[in-house]
Amino acid sequence: MSGILKSSIARKVVMALSGLFLVLFLLQHFLINFTSVFSATTFNEVSHFMGSNFFVQFLLQPILILGVIIHFVLGFVLEYNNRKARVKKYVRFNGSANSTWMSRNMIWTGLVVLAFLVLHFYDFWFPEIIHKYIQVHPEDPTRYYGETVAKFTDPVRTLLYVISFIFLSLHLLHGFSSSFQSVGWHEKFYKGMRGATVAFSILIPLGFIFIAVYHYFNQV
């Protein structure tokens, strides 16, 4: 831990690993949510399994929350240190000539993604915790689909989800591929992965947007 706090390289590696872990969760989350488009029964079955499985609830879920905290905290620490370390102003150094818009604005796209996570926790995770562990309702394995699609009856909330996933795509377009560099992948393997990370960074957020828009218009 002291090494992570003192070494910028160690912080970048841990941030990259936590980011790659969150990418895996994002894919799993998308695959589950996408079932809601074509089968309420399948979505209920998968959601019930995830919501009642001890391994998922009490091991993977805390690890996921810890991964989110580590990723964003280290992101802010690295951004603060990078800004503090800059001696030359942009008047003398044209940052846009050597980097993409996504790489220069990771902190801002990250803040939007963090705000979305807060909204997502407010919409889904907190109500689920209250339902199961505070109000202690009897388990209903058919409730998940109705509770999920009801969130998308509100056009403002649906629009916020769409905007958030656009910013998530921008964040991933730089962060996903650069994570492989941070963990030491050889340049030739990195170049081979670049196309796959770009496709993932565009298609998965678009998939989430499609799910939100589909459920909104399906209820109008």
Results as ranks from 00 to 15, higher is better:
41 T>M: 02
141 P>M: 07
191 K>L: 12
93 F>C: 02
128 E>P: 00
188 K>W: 09
13 V>F: 04
193 M>T: 11
178 S>Q: 12
34 F>Q: 04
117 L>Q: 04
13 V>R: 15
118 V>Y: 08
4 I>L: 09
10 A>S: 13
214 Y>I: 07
83 R>V: 05
31 L>N: 05
52 S>T: 15
53 N>C: 12
87 V>S: 09
60 L>W: 03
192 G>L: 08
162 V>E: 03
70 I>M: 05
74 L>E: 03
147 E>M: 12
36 S>C: 05
112 V>F: 13
180 F>V: 02
153 T>F: 04
57 Q>C: 06
40 A>K: 14
9 I>H: 08
150 A>K: 14
2 S>R: 10
171 H>R: 07
76 F>C: 05
129 I>P: 03
124 F>E: 12
70 I>Q: 01
139 E>F: 08
61 Q>E: 11
168 L>P: 00
97 A>C: 03
115 A>T: 12
18 S>F: 03
28 Q>W: 10
5 L>N: 04
74 L>D: 02
202 I>F: 03
28 Q>V: 13
162 V>M: 06
201 S>A: 14
158 T>Q: 04
199 A>D: 00
94 N>R: 12
3 G>K: 12
217 F>C: 05
149 V>L: 06
190 Y>H: 12
151 K>C: 06
174 H>V: 07
80 Y>R: 14
64 L>T: 11
48 H>E: 09
73 V>W: 09
192 G>D: 09
128 E>K: 10
134 I>W: 11
177 S>K: 07
99 S>Y: 14
81 N>I: 01
66 L>H: 00
116 F>G: 06
183 V>F: 00
12 K>T: 10
15 M>R: 11
6 K>Y: 04
91 V>N: 07
193 M>R: 05
97 A>D: 10
153 T>N: 14
111 L>E: 02
163 I>H: 04
6 K>Q: 13
95 G>I: 02
36 S>Y: 03
108 W>C: 05
1 M>C: 05
24 L>A: 15
56 V>A: 11
33 N>F: 02
205 P>A: 09
56 V>M: 13
82 N>D: 10
